[in-house]
Design a protein around this nucleic acid. Structure first.
Length: 229
DNA sequence: GCGACAG
DNA sequence: ATCTTGTCGC
């Protein structure tokens, strides 16, 4: 089993070590579970992070929404020092320590976590959402604003339309149109759920805007936490 | 070697 | 991610 505390204590010091950690943890990703059904009774938690490189400060937020009504039921923040530089493919090492602080301050355990970034849609199939899922044991999905290095054909113009996000011929996620005529978001599985449900959750959470309410709420809160830090 | 590259 | 003016529109 994975010990979250041990992983935090042995945080990689360089890129080679970070890639080795990803290769070691990757086999712990579970793709054989359905995960919570869309509209389930419970909480969906959005997490996001903001940086102040001048002060070397990072602030994270975790906002819990009622999975059915999308009402905010809890919120928590955490602050810390930047623990890793931004390197494409190694984003998790920059965000996870502070995200875990915020998650740990929620009143109850999330039923699903929505990350700002990717899960399996990653060069080594182990993006931020998968990494956070393995460390916490929670079902996670990734919703990104950009296609990263992957290819996709534009989905249809209507809300709910999807197209495969491809690494070569492998579908690593989906481009999902959450609002009519608006640029799609890029959904991938993190841990303990499947792509169909990941897209259904994302669509439900993005009823009014391009991005899921979880992401919007966490983004606003971590910016405020950074300003107050 | 050069360009691309989640946040 | 963050830096930033004005501008179009509900």
């Amino acid at each position: 089993m994975i010990s979250c505390d041990d992983e935090l204590r042995h945080w990689p010091a360089d890129e080679a070590q970070a890639r080795a950690v990803q290769d070691r943890l990757r086999p712990h990703v579970r793709l054989d579970e359905a995960g919570p059904e869309p509209g389930f009774e419970g909480t969906v938690v959005g997490v996001d992070v903001a940086y102040d490189d001048e002060r070397d400060v990072v602030a994270a937020a975790a906002v819990a929404l009622d999975a059915r009504t999308r009402a905010v039921v809890d919120r928590a923040t955490g602050v810390g020092q930047v623990s890793f530089p931004y390197v494409p493919g190694l984003l998790a090492f920059r965000e996870i320590p502070t995200v875990l602080k915020a998650l740990g301050r929620l009143a109850r355990t999330p039923d699903l976590v929505v990350c700002d970034g990717y899960g399996l849609a990653h060069p080594r199939r182990f993006g931020l959402a998968s990494h956070l899922g393995v460390l916490t044991g929670l079902p996670t999905i990734g919703v990104a604003k950009n296609p990263f290095t992957f290819r996709y054909a534009p989905p249809g113009p209507e809300r709910g339309a999807t197209s495969p996000l491809l690494d070569g011929t492998e579908e690593v996620g989906r481009a999902l149109r959450t609002q009519q005529g608006v640029k799609p978001v890029f959904v991938s599985v993190g841990h303990r759920t499947d792509l169909d449900r990941a897209c259904a959750h994302t669509l439900h959470l993005a009823a009014d805007y391009r991005l899921p309410e979880t992401t919007r709420a966490a983004d606003a809160l971590c910016r405020r936490a950074l300003a107050d830090a």
